[in-house]
Design a protein around this nucleic acid. Structure first.
Lengths: 192, 192
DNA sequence: CCCTTTCCGCTACTGCGGTTTCGTAAATCA
DNA sequence: TGATTTACGAAACCGCAGTAGCGGAAAGGG
């Protein structure tokens, strides 16, 4: 009694998610209209609602689908690793439309399910930083009187803070300064 | 050439702001409907739009209106001051509905004018922290190899980061840890 | 081959909420 | 008083989330 009736078109899911991602990138969460997603995907709106019961559900699925992680392999220099990582995250954030980040945060604040999926989206970055910070602590580069989690927040948090609140730019220099502030000045920095 | 034409009803502003506050408290940002605000204020929607060009502008004005700033008078202990200030900001943030903060950020990301208003909204807090950090630097409590602005970001940024991104709670302990991380451990902390 | 079931695309419709249009009221200026 | 300028309220406009009803398509069961 499994395959009764006409089977679902297997291509639909992919096409819809792809279209939705494009719309989300372009217009943000609020600007994402189901009508447009349907049109872009070459699919009827009802077909979308047959798979996802609401716009929020669709976005949840979509975010899980996104997952473009910051590429990163750790070397033996923790300071360099950390700088590279924070800089990379800053670059990702600046290349992402600010409205997207803000809208995702807003949607997450409103809907627990979205909150969860969005959190997993950022979690990868967060975790990567945590690992490097832990390694730096092992290497004795960091004062150990503070929990690593807090240091991570102080490295990554300011990026979101600038992006969403103060509106200041996320330059590579800024990223470097953040790392310097947490690790203390390196030998080369102290010359200036 | 001042008073040409029919003068604006002076009572409108207050009535609308009051009504909007009530609606915001009751329904949140998204649930705040201009229709209901107008009805509750006993005013036509156009009358609202003549004074504020959009819902977001109205909400910004509203928040500015009820703005009871973080009260703060600096004492002679910079560490204590800073802890108190960061803790107070954290408390304010947690007592504010998260959606409101997120929605304001989203609105700001979408519209430059709103961005400006919202920025001035947070600016007071930011400035207060900056002053105390500068004072702490004068007192030799802070390593001087980092610009004060960055330290401020590392004190305040994590609060917004937790609130909007990771969703972790903003406890007083967390605020204290942030300060400790920036200033280094105090004598009393080192005992533990 | 029909029958049933499920999917699909299409169109229209409801309801809601932000924003605008328009006719009219209240003020100043000549 | 009459022309002009600005404010006001009512109603309309518009976009969008979500639903409903249709004819037709693609599968399986008899």
């Amino acid at each position: 009694m499994v395959g009764r009736g006409r089977p679902r078109d297997a291509e639909v899911e992919g096409k819809v998610l792809e279209a939705a991602v494009a719309e989300l990138r372009q217009r943000g969460y609020e600007g994402l209209a189901m009508d447009r997603v349907a049109e872009r995907a070459g699919v009827a709106k009802t077909t979308i609602y047959r798979r996802w019961s609401s716009k929020a559900e669709l976005v949840v699925a979509l975010i899980t689908h996104l997952r473009d992680d910051v590429p990163f392999e750790p070397g033996d220099d923790s300071r360099r690793d950390l700088t590279a990582l924070v800089t990379a995250i800053a670059a990702r954030l600046t290349s992402t439309p600010t409205t997207l980040v803000a809208d995702l945060a807003a949607a997450a604040a409103r809907d627990p399910r979205i909150s969860e999926s969005v959190r997993t989206l950022w979690a990868a970055r967060h975790r990567a930083v945590t690992e490097v910070v832990a390694k730096a602590q092992q290497d004795g580069l960091v004062l150990t009187h503070v929990a690593p989690a807090v240091l991570v927040d102080q490295l990554v948090g300011p990026l979101y803070y600038r992006l969403l609140v103060t509106g200041e730019p996320l330059t590579p220099e800024y990223a470097r300064t953040l790392v310097t502030s947490v690790l203390g000045p390196s030998r080369s920095d102290q010359e200036s």
